[in-house]
Design a protein around this nucleic acid. Structure first.
Lengths: 249, 249
DNA sequence: CCAATAGTGTCTTTAAGACAATATATA
DNA sequence: TATATATTGTCTTAAAGACACTATTGG
């Protein structure tokens, strides 16, 4: 229909990082207090625009990971989550953001970065419940990231990345319980994780926790994909009708 | 580190559509012969740039669906597949493409559209095996789309969308066999699909195929998500070591 | 001793997969 | 009749989940 010489519109491409970790007994997400407009002073995900026109998107994500979170991408689990580009989501213009999910074991206290006045860990439950207000559409992005992490726990060995280099089965169970937000039977969990081929391998030593019988130590096994998967008990409060068409992200 | 007033680089945002259907006994994908540079004359996925700076990304996908494939988005399964933005993938500049997956029952012969000299269905196996050369990185995008469709068949009622309004269990099984690329036992499949709550519901009539005993007819049930899922038999030739970090798409 | 956590065994239910057997159409 | 497909039934094995029970520490 269009016969004219026509120039496609340009957009600004950003990356946003959902960095999840376990602190204490809660799943927490790294947030920064924005030092610049828009949403100056509000909490938001770390992220930013491409540094230059030739930068790869994944490279930009790893750069922001280092700049805003002080984390070198080495060994970090990093995965594309989705694209969020609804018109009007950013007052600076048409900004399309590619969200990445990063997951890591006990991370240090974050350092304030270039564009961030301060960085801090916040429990995902506070964010998802709405008790904590965020800039942009970042609450939605975090919700998608948490759901992705929950699913990945079922099918990949991601959970061991939340633990230290050696860990007890109880500690591994605590990871599942925290991320999934539900309690699991320790006895069935014990048998189940040991049956999964290459998931965890025993060590020689032992360790005692604060109380009770000491527990054997394990390390992460060679398998990255779990078969059979560690299935999450069905959430009885799940919808049934058809969510066929996704909304604009 | 950067103190100067600095402008983030702009990129061109495109959408690409992986439109899958069943034609005959094969899973086929809609391709267009490009009428403009780059890759003029080559086969590629339908798609294009945002029409204007305020157009939603999903809206652009639905517009291209109508323009290039002659399909109005009504009732069509449409889902974000991923972002493909490796520098250098398009000679026109820094182009970042959001891929969408669309799946539909028997679609009409496609019509040539604005930027497409011709549109045609091609078997995914020819594309994935490399027998059919494609422009850009579209072979990779199609591979991701087919894999996504295979997984969705396990957990959603998507398969019924490949069938007509009423169908036999054999026809439903043929959908699974074609998309998954493997044979299934008809007797176990028969019991299995009927056990899944709300997946398919029986009708009153009957139908005979070309040969053999006539089969009962069913229609799609109310459930969009299958529990338990229709699990795909494990591909014995699957890797085990860690594919933790994704490549740049 | 008691409290608390680690680890084992056992039972029931459910699902997957192999496959025999029967039913009902067309040629 | 033969042939092909549909549908039912049965058997075996594996996995999930509930839960009793034993083991080993610290207080």
């Amino acid at each position: 229909m269009i016969e004219d010489p026509w120039e496609p519109p340009a957009v600004l491409l950003a990356v946003d990082l959902v960095i999840l970790t376990l602190r204490g007994t809660r799943l927490q997400v790294l947030l920064v207090e924005r030092g610049i407009e828009p949403h100056r002073g509000a909490l938001a995900l770390p992220g930013g625009f491409l540094a230059h026109a030739e930068e790869g998107i994944g490279a930009a994500a790893r750069r922001e990971l280092a700049e805003e979170a002080g984390l070198e991408g080495e060994g970090l689990y990093l995965e594309q989550l989705g694209v969020y580009g609804k018109p009007g989501r950013d007052p600076r213009g048409r900004v399309v953001s590619v969200a990445y999910l990063a997951v890591a074991p006990r991370l240090p206290e974050p350092v304030a970065g270039t564009d961030a006045a301060a960085a801090c860990w916040q429990p995902t439950e506070c964010v998802l419940s709405g008790d904590l207000a965020l800039g942009f559409d970042h609450r939605r992005i975090i919700a998608d990231g948490v759901e992705r992490a929950r699913t990945k726990l079922e099918h990949s060995a991601l959970a061991t990345a939340f633990c230290g280099p050696v860990f007890t089965i109880s500690e591994l169970q605590a990871v599942y319980e925290t991320v999934w937000g539900m309690r699991l039977d320790p006895r069935n969990f014990y048998r189940k994780v040991q049956k999964v081929d290459g998931f965890i391998v025993p060590t020689g030593g032992e360790q005692r926790t604060t109380v009770g019988r000491p527990a054997r130590l394990f390390r992460a096994g060679p398998s990255a994909v779990l078969s059979p998967p560690i299935t999450r008990p069905v959430d009885t409060a799940s919808a049934d009708s058809a969510p066929v068409q996704e909304g604009e992200k």
